[in-house]
Design a protein around this nucleic acid. Structure first.
Lengths: 342, 342
DNA sequence: CTGAAAGCGCTTACAG
DNA sequence: CTGAAAGCGCTTACAG
């Protein structure tokens, strides 16, 4: 097995210096068209590819981005939240579009993940994705910032944050869900999902919901809220908890589709029909949402745009250009699970 | 912004040579415990991380694997086949477990994807994943082999192939599905999915199905087979095609869950009930399978093991150790969609 | 437009 | 156990 050709081999074959090979192959305008062609031909014949390790070392950047995907250590290993999967797809595409490679890695929240890819120069910057306790997370974010690691984050966009993050309009999303439910005649709307600053995205959805209720002149019943994280199991359990309270409710707003699907199972088991007895709405519009029975009303986030924004903002950070957090619009998708009027 | 520390900075601070820093940090046994500790301390203080580009260049391998994900150019951009998503998760985890990073990239079948990551030394080897026309693909596989690129593939394991691939027992899977359906009293079992050597995995499932029918003394009706690729839309259309033929059938075996779900919609629209009028079975056990109504009987492939096998075999190839194609067992999961007996 | 040379930050024989 | 030195394969001033 002959070892791979280097730029010197190409130089020999094309009868030029190694420096010229390097220039020609990167399309430098300094090199004559004739030379460029000869070099290219030699490179093709020898099946030459630039060694990225060497060129990255010299150029001092890697042309790759790292995607750190956080997951709860308790989560079922085999199932990643489908919403993030969709983000992953759009991020991958956005990277490709901008000529960057993407390194992906699953991380546990608890581990020492900060300072890794970027510091070891495997990636020029990092995209942070995943649900998890924000307050626990914040500290590490600060360290990244202190080290001047370039990163962007998907999540809530809060007024006082120091990092760049892209998120959807969770407040507005929560509000339109509640308004829709009110419009359907519902008056006792339960909320399934964590509603604290530990999970700012859910909290914003909750606040939007609360705002709509208030505007409708309804009191916010704390007994109608049950904590849940974004898994089916958690949704199922939260629903059971709610049912055990023996409080009347005619609608459920689940902070995510996965929670909604879990809740749906619990409702079914309990003999309650959706939407006749209880209207149900989720958030995320994961593919499953339209397949459950009844199809689930939910809120779509534009993952394609989200991925693109994450990547372009990270690229700006890397180039020391101004970058900016952004809130993306959301849209309510009405399906059968929330329709109580004929 | 001070630039990042190098091994020379650590050497200064620890009062040793740069070579010793390198050794100490990689845990070489040559260096004394006392020195190692001092170096480590200095590295921690300066927040030092080895520059991977430099170390990879020197060591001549990258410690990363590339995952090339093939998708039909026609496919809906936003939705990746959930089955592959599950594979992606297990591959990512397997890489992490073996201390490798994972680069991911979506590729179109048509593009010039062969010879890329591995040749540019960004990855030591490649994992190939995705559905697509095998015959079109084969040619490029040959080129990879010729260049001595290390790669493994998820897909059918065929007797005469030259590359290493890992796949599930498609033939057996097809057979157990058909046997189950026969056992439910079905006699006219349609097959939705491509049944040619262009899509060897589907073809194997078809052959398993055919074998079961034959064993039951039933003739193979070609009019009961309709081509489909692994998308909902394609399944929906294939079902419509079948319905337009006005042939009697009492069961449908869809070559994938996505096809089955599309078929289910078409059946519903046509006023046919599953499983009462038509029993339905899919393949893959994607998360959605248990959420459709009725829940879908299907065949599970062990994606966790699959990911692990892909990675370990690729690693063997990289280390010039013997690697071997493998067929993983499958299991039928019976849900309501195929139950015709009470 | 092209070449000779320096250097990116490591790892690893080679000496001692 | 440690150090001095070479070299991995590029890119990019610096000259001409």
């Amino acid at each position: 097995m002959k070892s791979k050709a280097t730029s010197f081999d190409i130089a020999d074959r094309a009868g030029v210096s190694q420096a010229t090979v390097s220039r020609a192959l990167r399309g430098s305008l300094q090199v004559s068209e004739e030379t460029r062609r000869r070099v290219q031909a030699a490179a093709d014949e020898l099946n030459y590819k630039v060694d990225k390790n060497a060129s990255n070392l010299r150029k001092r950047h890697s042309g790759t981005l790292a995607l750190l995907f956080f997951e709860d250590p308790t989560a079922d290993e085999s199932h990643i939240n489908p919403f993030f999967l969709s983000m992953l797809g759009s991020i991958t595409r956005a990277c490709a579009k901008h000529g960057y490679d993407l390194l992906i890695s699953f991380q546990q929240f608890s581990r020492d993940w900060h300072a890794d890819f970027a510091d070891s120069k495997k990636a020029d910057g990092i995209i942070l994705l995943g649900y998890g306790d924000y307050l626990a997370y914040c500290d590490k974010l600060g360290k990244l910032l202190a080290q001047e690691t370039r990163f962007v984050r998907w999540g809530a966009v809060l007024p006082d944050q120091l990092d760049i993050s892209i998120g959807c309009d969770n407040f507005h999303g929560g509000r339109v869900v509640a308004e829709h439910l009110l419009d359907q005649g519902c008056r006792q709307i339960a909320f399934l999902g964590d509603a604290s600053s530990h999970y700012p995205e859910f909290f914003e959805r909750y606040r939007g919901y609360a705002a709509a209720l208030e505007q409708a002149g309804l009191a916010l019943e704390s007994s109608l809220q049950v904590n849940a994280e974004s898994t089916e199991r958690s949704g199922y359990e939260a629903m059971q908890t709610l049912l055990r309270r023996h409080i009347e409710f005619d609608a459920v707003f689940a902070a995510s589709d996965l929670i909604a699907i879990g809740a749906l199972h619990a409702l079914n088991e309990h003999g309650l029909r959706v939407p006749q007895d209880v209207a149900l709405v989720g958030f995320d519009d994961i593919p499953m949402a339209s397949f459950v029975n009844p199809p689930l009303t939910t809120v779509v986030q534009d993952t394609k745009q989200a991925g693109e924004m994450l990547v372009t903002n990270l690229l700006r950070l890397i180039r020391n250009e101004p970058a900016q957090s952004a809130i993306l619009p959301v849209k309510l998708v009405v399906r059968r699970s929330s329709l109580r009027k004929p």
